[in-house]
């Protein structure tokens, strides 16, 4: 099932993607969701469905409600109206945290915290071990996750000594260590140098190819259109939901970001 469309593109996009996804279970299901921190809604009447294995990017101008949408679908906020489900369960009641890997914008708030990459990645195992200690098998999973993101040489390095791109790789490794089915990334490349951004998206592409569902909230329109297979354009309400190739030339792009945005997205405009 796909989202309730508002733009002209959405019906077409629905048909194109529904066919290939019809046998995939739904990972995220928002139905008629509205939410506001005050009486003014930040997002209104949002209906979105994301199926297992999809690579979806949410884009929108500043203040469009991207991060709010992310918090709603992760169960960190409760909708004022409508329903939000994660893996078929009410998102606010969802308790299988190991299935979701979360990478924040500049995660890890303490500037000087002496914590190594391995200690960060092992947090991914905490939902599995609860109050217990990590077993030898858990540590093998941790080391494999570090290896997967190409950070083995940095495993015992303090995370504060790493570049922005390296840190974000460590946070992805944490999600992998948790054996997450869904990877949610909130503007993960803010403040990351261009070369590291390319390597970062290469990593996301390979993880998606292995079957992980990727939900990316991103400001970099060109990166989104190059890597994600589906784009949701948000500005309080959904302007566009469809294949990323169609987004670059859509009216929704100009409507959300203004004329000239096509060039930022790598389109023809």
């Amino acid at each position: 099932m796909r989202s309730t469309m508002r733009s002209d593109h959405r019906d077409d996009a629905d048909e194109a993607t529904t066919e290939s996804n019809e046998n995939r279970p739904s990972v995220v299901e928002l139905a008629d969701v509205s939410f506001g921190y005050t009486s003014t809604p930040v997002v209104e009447d949002i209906s979105v469905s994301i199926d297992a294995g999809e690579y979806v990017a949410v884009v929108g101008p500043n203040g469009s409600g991207k991060s709010t949408l992310m918090q709603l679908l992760l169960g960190l906020l409760e909708p004022d109206t409508g329903t939000a489900e994660l893996f078929g369960v009410d998102a606010t009641a969802f308790d299988d945290g190991a299935r979701v890997g979360y990478v924040a914008q500049r995660a890890g708030t303490s500037r000087e915290m002496p914590i190594t990459v391995r200690e960060v990645v092992k947090m991914g195992r905490f939902p599995h071990v609860g109050f217990g200690r990590l077993s030898a098998a858990d540590w093998r999973i941790v080391d494999r996750a570090i290896d997967t993101v190409g950070m083995s040489a940095f495993a015992d390095r303090r995370i504060t000594q790493l570049s922005g791109g390296q840190r974000q790789r460590a946070f992805i490794a944490r999600a992998l260590a948790g054996e997450a089915d869904l990877l949610v990334l909130d503007e993960p490349t803010v403040g990351v140098d261009t070369e590291s951004v390319d390597a970062f998206y290469g990593l996301l592409d390979s993880l998606h190819a292995e079957g992980i569902t990727v939900l990316l909230i991103e400001h970099d329109l060109q990166a989104v259109t190059e890597h994600a297979e589906r784009v949701i354009c948000l500005n309080g309400e959904i302007y566009f939901d469809g294949p990323s190739a169609e987004f670059t030339d859509s009216a929704a792009l100009a409507r959300a970001f203004g004329t000239g945005a096509q060039s930022l997205a790598g389109g023809n405009g």
Partner: peptide, 22 residues
């Protein structure tokens, strides 16, 4: 000793800890 994992997670990354179900 009992809650060291949880306290570390909440200390380092409160949002990710909440997403993980803590």
């Amino acid at each position: 000793a009992l809650t060291r994992n949880q306290l570390l997670y909440v200390t380092f990354d409160e949002t990710a800890a909440a997403v993980s179900g803590l």
